[in-house]
Design a binder for these strands. Sequence first.
DNA 1: CCGTCGGATCGAATCGATTCGAGGAGGTGC
DNA 2: GCACCTCCTCGAATCGATTCGATCCGACGG
Lengths: 380, 380
Amino acid sequence: MSDTPGNREPAAAAAPAHRPTLAKVAELAGVSVSTASLAFSGAGPITPETRARVLDAAKELGYTGPNPLGRQLRSGRSGVVGVVVGDQLRRAFRDPVAVQVLDGLVSTLGENGLGVLLIPGIPSDDPARAVDPLVESAAMDVAVLVWGVGSDDATLAALQRRGVPVVIGEGRAVEGTPLVAIRDRAGTADVVRHLVDLGHTRVAEVSLPLDNSDRSGPIDAQRLAQVDRTPTANRLAGVRDVVEPVASWETEASLVEHGRSATLALLGSTAADGTTEAADPATRPTAVIAHSDLLAAGALLAARELGLRVPDDVSVAGFDGLDLPWLAPDVLTSVHQPLARKGSELGLAVIRQLAGETPTTVELDVELVVGTTTGPAPTT
Amino acid sequence: MSDTPGNREPAAAAAPAHRPTLAKVAELAGVSVSTASLAFSGAGPITPETRARVLDAAKELGYTGPNPLGRQLRSGRSGVVGVVVGDQLRRAFRDPVAVQVLDGLVSTLGENGLGVLLIPGIPSDDPARAVDPLVESAAMDVAVLVWGVGSDDATLAALQRRGVPVVIGEGRAVEGTPLVAIRDRAGTADVVRHLVDLGHTRVAEVSLPLDNSDRSGPIDAQRLAQVDRTPTANRLAGVRDVVEPVASWETEASLVEHGRSATLALLGSTAADGTTEAADPATRPTAVIAHSDLLAAGALLAARELGLRVPDDVSVAGFDGLDLPWLAPDVLTSVHQPLARKGSELGLAVIRQLAGETPTTVELDVELVVGTTTGPAPTT
DNA sequence: CCGTCGGATCGAATCGATTCGAGGAGGTGC
DNA sequence: GCACCTCCTCGAATCGATTCGATCCGACGG
């Protein structure tokens, strides 16, 4: 076998495990490579005996099935779907919303034999890292941009340049790519209408990030015009479809602590000694609408801290429909969105894309679920 | 070019985008394929003009670089690291501990041009799903079992059968595979010693799951013998190195709500009307040691619910060192472990494994950080 | 003026499997 | 008994790139 002088074994000292190939198995079984391939793939006719002989030979050699790399090259498919997450995983995954969507996506793709490759997105504000090796050259059949695309998305551009088909979740529609979205705007309007129906007129808003600038603070008209994330834009619009909020506060991420600090700013006033206490009940907002449940949870904690009773002194509502048992005994009033379903739909869109079907837009329904955190506006 | 009659174009109607190959580029540039390859890879000598000519030709054809599949087959490397997560992502990623480790892992691997493929593990209690397509046949250079391996791990077995090198985090050491662990046992002993030093003698324990049976309830000696997860075993042992807990409660997952219910059971007693109130201060545990911060957070909430002051009536300590700002104003006493570092070390172990180095075991240090939730045992 | 040396380019083998058309053996029908 | 048909197996091309050794060229030294 090693009759060739000058073998191509450069320095592989402790690597005796040159895995056997299909050819070796075929040789041992006394059949051709093509027949051996048939034995494994099951495509095409083959006698049970021949098949058994091949399988026996495989077992004897310790061959555990066709090398995926060879198969992939031949078929032109890698079986891998790239999922673009934020540049920091820890950030993207701290939000249960993201995790649940991803869970649905991974399950659906897994059922179809597709794997998920985590791709750190290219931060649009960092041109130095404009070439991410994974985005630029990882093998993937489709890429999923789960959390939308900005107006000037470097990752999207790179993928399109490479010719990788793209599926987008929750965001701006892009020519020729499937989109899976939810009815943010209508859902947000629903919950705000619920508040208005309860008599609330001074509604404060805790907003999702408007872009990826990590800013936080009050949103004025000028800032409002700069919004560059579709979900945020939709929810801002949904609120304003019903009422003009008396105050609106931008947060840097959908996390409990940011909801808390935003709400302290909206409902509290800083005393001379630096401590924060509840603001004047006559002017203070009577309801807080948060763009997410995590922010709403923070709002709830802030209200408790300020000594405000929920919902007697202030009503709090969120968006997402997360299960937050540690808020007990309170149950958030929230707009429930089908998170796992959103992931599944993304997965199905990927599969349709691979099948060559023409891209479609899917829009999922949401549902207002009233909990214990909203009630009639205080009469004072 | 298409002088061959009977082209191999079966039914690719709307797919004109047969991506150009290196051969086509070489042809247009008037050079050989090998030279064109050199122009892209940069390996080997090449005149700047030739290189430019190739690159121009590539641009003209819309060729965006070598097809990863071809390169992978040739090199025998896929550049992909499989990371085995629980069968349900949503479950694995609800724990910030997991997410932070994964974040460190993804960063480190990303810096080395390696991608992370999410692999749902094979549930050991479900023989029907004993063949996961991804575990069985996805292309990966190394697999990482981040959360340890059980005594009879189907996923590990499948990977070993395939000959995929494995790296293990936090668990039982396996012959010939690198391991990255932390000093659970010593760290746990440290925090328990801290409690004992404060005068606590009646210490209750809220334990991580002992196996993947989803059981919850008190742990007796018999159950204690069945533990099949190394981190849990280590922490149980660490506690017992210092004190014998007056009560120990198994949870089904490291989540706030389970910590809460366990603690209600440990510190409360159910009244005749079905409500739970604090048990007799004379016999009630004065300290709760939880195996994780999420469980400890639940314990804290439960204590508050029972009307117990922390740390005056009861001390609470955890493990992990998570940042839990929504527990404010409390700050958990906890054993901090370097989570991102653990991920990085796993990544480095992967890289060493790929470089053919011999597997080593890395054990990371932990540090007790005293917060506001532990204090002297009540004198009554 | 010729031999030699070094750098750039090319040819061909190789990675490991899939697939299609051809060929061969065995069985059936007339 | 012959022709035909079916079913299985085989050979060879192919997927797209990398890489090694060979070749070819110009330049330089003797």
